[in-house]
Amino acid sequence: MGAPEPAASLPDGGPAIEVNDLTVAYREQPVLWDIDLEVRPGALTAIVGPNGAGKTTLIQSILGLVRPAAGRVRILDRTIQEARSEVAYVPQRGTVDWDFPTSVLDVVLMGTYREVGWFRRPGRPERIRAVRALEKVGMEAYQDRQIRQLSGGQQQRVFLARALVQEARIYLMDEPFQGVDARTETAIVEVLRELRDRGDTVVAVHHALQTVPEYFDDVVILNVRRIASGPVSEVFTEDNLRVAYGGRVPFLQAVSDAPVADLPES
């Protein structure tokens, strides 16, 4: 990746992502209901909530992949179409076919396709950047591997590298820690912190509530409606979680004494 972006390139005081009155419905059933949200630039933000809370839909609405019934989304005070080059997306690992006949380097190169544009192919400069992105996630030794030979944690790191190679300023990730081993989790957290420290914005759907305070600065608690959002220290409270999870909060039972790092992955 290039030199750190100067913080001054961010719009002064403006949010990285601004969501107003967003409502998304599938077949007249609201999946997201009247969401208002501001994502702080240069922070790591978690989206948490029970299954069916609309976490993935929120990410996809921000990306413009889902057509909302109402509301609007602004990215760095622009529409998503205008801001595509600023946004990198890491879908859930399980949404793609890992038996697809391609190599690790090739998957990372897909991250460059947008800027390469129609009709052209990535060349040497893109390859060099892809290898560097793989180095960041500790996967450079695997660049010629076929992707079907990767473990779950390795797949997730390849996905992360593919986002890094886009050199975006906003990273939207759908469950980047899902099904990865402890070592990979640490490696991913480190990369996310590095992104934040250069002023980039990371929003990640996250399942393991017990690691939210350790990994993230801000949190959005979601269950069709926005229950709360803001700094973890202020809004990540038992009360808010109870509202979202309906009284039974897995985290509140699990967190009693186990040290965070030893908790089983979800």
């Binding site: 990306l63 992949l65 595509r84 997306y89 949404t95 793609v96 897909m110 396709y113 129609w118 192919r121």
Partner: peptide, 22 residues
């Protein structure tokens, strides 16, 4: 030849292809 990479990325990961504007 013209749409090799678009076909490839939309086959492998339609979500990413859409997010990138293809």
């Amino acid at each position: 030849m013209a749409f090799y990479k678009e076909l490839k990325v939309s086959t492998f990961d339609a979500g990413l292809a859409a997010a990138m504007g293809f």
